[in-house]
Structure formats: C-alpha cells, structure tokens
Lab assay of single mutants.
Amino acid sequence: LTVHVGNVTYHFDNPEQAEEWAKRMAKKYQGQIHVKDGQFRIE
C-alpha cells in the first residue's frame, strides 16, 4: 500500500498502518485524504 504526501511516497505492508498514517498526515497538513486504487493521497 502506498501513501503519497505531496511528492513523498511511503510504502506500507499493513493496510491499517497505511490508513492510520494517512489520517495523521492529513491532520498535520490539514489536507484531504483521497483513496484510489489502494493508494492514499494527501492533498
């Protein structure tokens, strides 16, 4: 699973971990989480 934050990409084996990280990053950067094809993108 991949989480994109700006132009930085993080890889996770565990979906719960990826989702948790995406939520934390979205809160930190006050962005929206977009989920597409098993990838999380924070914008």
Rank of each mutant, 00 (worst) to 15 (best):
L1N: 15
L1Q: 10
T2I: 09
T2F: 08
T2K: 09
T2A: 10
V3Q: 01
V3D: 00
V3M: 02
V3N: 00
V3C: 06
V3H: 01
V5R: 02
V5S: 02
V5N: 02
V5F: 12
V5C: 15
G6M: 09
G6N: 14
N7E: 08
N7P: 09
N7I: 08
V8W: 12
V8K: 13
T9D: 05
T9I: 14
Y10P: 01
Y10Q: 01
H11E: 07
F12K: 00
F12R: 00
F12Y: 01
F12N: 00
D13C: 14
D13L: 09
D13G: 09
D13I: 09
N14Q: 08
N14S: 12
N14D: 14
N14H: 12
P15S: 14
E16T: 10
E16W: 11
E16Y: 12
Q17W: 09
Q17D: 13
Q17E: 14
Q17P: 01
Q17C: 14
Q17M: 11
A18W: 04
A18K: 02
A18T: 01
A18Y: 04
A18R: 02
A18C: 09
E19Y: 15
E19T: 07
E19C: 14
E19G: 05
E20N: 08
E20Y: 09
E20M: 08
E20I: 08
W21D: 00
W21T: 01
A22H: 02
A22M: 05
A22K: 03
K23S: 05
K23Q: 10
K23A: 05
R24Q: 13
R24G: 06
R24I: 14
R24Y: 14
R24N: 08
R24E: 14
M25D: 01
M25F: 08
M25C: 13
A26C: 15
K27Q: 13
K27Y: 10
K28T: 03
K28P: 01
K28R: 12
K28F: 10
Y29H: 08
Y29W: 09
Y29M: 07
Y29Q: 03
Q30P: 06
Q30V: 06
G31L: 13
G31P: 01
G31C: 15
Q32K: 11
Q32Y: 08
Q32W: 05
Q32T: 14
I33D: 04
H34W: 07
H34D: 07
V35C: 13
V35H: 06
V35P: 01
V35L: 12
V35D: 04
V35W: 13
K36M: 11
K36F: 11
D37N: 06
D37T: 00
D37G: 03
G38F: 04
G38M: 02
Q39I: 10
Q39C: 15
Q39L: 03
Q39E: 14
F40E: 05
R41H: 15
R41D: 07
R41G: 07
I42E: 05
I42G: 04
I42L: 03
I42Q: 03
I42H: 04
I42T: 03
E43D: 08
E43F: 08
